[in-house]
Amino acid sequence: MDLASLIFWIIAVVLVAAALVVVGQRNIVHSALALVVVFAMASGIFLLLNAEFIAIVQILIYAGAVTILILFALMLTRIAGQRVTNPNARPLAMAVALVVSALVGLGIIFAATVSQFAQSAPAAQLLQGTVCSLPSNNVIAIGQLLYSPSCYSYVLPFEIATVVLLVAIVGAIVISREEE
């Protein structure tokens, strides 16, 4: 077993275990802390796949911002005197949910491994616009793919994403504002 496989298996086991803790833990603060481990391990998977920029962004946005946001929401919505704020549903409903999610997971795994669609499909020749030669540095390549005005790039989706973020900020302020 080579080094990459070893790292993959360690990260994968910790990742799945932490995700199970997030889902299974009754105390929601423990769930939120296990969520940090999930995000950090996913960042390790991204590093393994040569996606350095997304690994850093994952740490910054998910492990930093989203988890802090969730912890703040937990503090602001804690009901006094209630230790377990994360009650589980009825056993029958849990069994149904288990069966449904197991079926979805088995379907995905079947489609990805043994079905005929798992064989590689021929590539379509649909690429439009000039493709610049991208550098091998992942961060520089992603910057060029996001911003470049002359080559094949994602400038327009990027601008739309900025508008989405602006609307989300304004909307969050408007929704959570105290009414006089």
Binding site: L15, V16, L20, V100, S101, V104, G105, I108
Partner: peptide, 9 residues
């Protein structure tokens, strides 16, 4: 897929 169905559950 495993992570997705844990989240779905």
């Amino acid at each position: 897929a495993v992570l997705f169905c844990i989240g779905l559950y």
